[in-house]
Simulated scan of single mutants.
Amino acid sequence: MSADFIAGYISGAAGILIGNPLDIIKVRLQAGSSSVASASVTGASSPSTYASQFSSAGTLIRGATAPILGYGALNALLFVTYNRTSDLLNTNKQTGGTPNLWTTWIAGAVGGLATWAVSTPTELIKCRAQVSSSATAASSLRIAKDILRTEGIRGLYFGGVVTALRDSVGYGFYFWSYEISTRFMMSRMDQDAATTGNGQKEAAKVLLCGGLAGIVTWASIFPLDVIKTRVQTQILGPGDGGERTSLLGQRRLGAMEVARNAYRTEGVNVFFKGLAICSVRAFIVNAAQWAVYEWIMRELDPVRKSKSESIGIPT
């Protein structure tokens, strides 16, 4: 098993554990009152404060089971695909050359697209678990079983197109922004190479660049994520003539219909609802995720470890 697969899996699971409470707030703000979170349907309310989103300690980890299992695999697949695609597109990397920023974006987009098979069902289960109220909360496993029983395997991939688009664009910017901010920080570190504390500076660089990459990524795709959340939090019930309809008495809508209805009823601001809390979460989670990834890669990759030790980075 490759080092980047192991590092990607562990860092992905760590990121979910750290960011799940803030992710619950983001999803509930995005879903709005028209989703499964509607008080008239599930008994859930639309809390007016961040603190009121959590009715119990268990709420802090609601919906975390699917992401911990899914995003570990997703992150592993993402980094493996990105690294292999980047090596293929940037032949000069083998001679120590600097990767082209455009090919970095493309490699990230390919990596994001490769995660579609894992990210779509994971996101679907996570979002439905997170918007449920305490009275009606179901486990991730229960939600998955219900979907499979009523809709089959296709039900787990509802919203797959908008999820794939979100992941492809988002991860393109994710690796692009990490690369460009790393280059900037490295140039600053090189200018100050005569000073001590290179190990601390390297750690600070990884944390800062990882956090900034998270913010840039979510800012670039947030409207798509709002649409995806609203599409996937529609829960179906039996309708007339065998047609499956939403619990609100409407047929289940596609991404374009959801976007048009959201804009018509709530205006353009709806596509940025939850962006502030998401940016905070993105910085924290991705700073930690990149730090874990880089640390594990240094431990598992002898070349990286020797380079780190040569500039005084603790391992």
Score class of each variant (00 low, 15 high):
56 S>P: 03
57 A>Q: 07
59 T>H: 02
59 T>F: 00
60 L>S: 02
61 I>A: 15
63 G>K: 12
68 I>Y: 03
69 L>D: 13
73 A>F: 05
74 L>T: 09
74 L>D: 02
75 N>Y: 09
77 L>T: 15
80 V>F: 05
81 T>G: 10
82 Y>W: 11
84 R>A: 13
86 S>E: 13
87 D>H: 13
87 D>G: 12
87 D>K: 13
91 T>G: 10
95 T>E: 14
96 G>N: 12
98 T>E: 14
99 P>Y: 11
106 I>R: 03
112 G>T: 07
119 S>N: 09
120 T>W: 08
127 C>S: 04
128 R>I: 01
129 A>Q: 09
131 V>G: 00
133 S>P: 09
135 A>R: 15
135 A>H: 05
142 R>Q: 10
144 A>P: 00
145 K>S: 04
149 R>S: 10
150 T>R: 15
153 I>G: 01
153 I>W: 09
154 R>M: 03
154 R>G: 15
158 F>R: 14
160 G>D: 00
160 G>T: 08
163 T>R: 01
163 T>V: 08
164 A>V: 04
166 R>W: 04
167 D>A: 09
170 G>Q: 11
170 G>S: 07
171 Y>S: 02
171 Y>F: 15
171 Y>C: 03
172 G>S: 04
172 G>D: 06
183 R>A: 01
186 M>I: 08
187 S>N: 07
188 R>Q: 14
197 G>N: 09
198 N>W: 13
199 G>R: 10
199 G>L: 13
199 G>A: 11
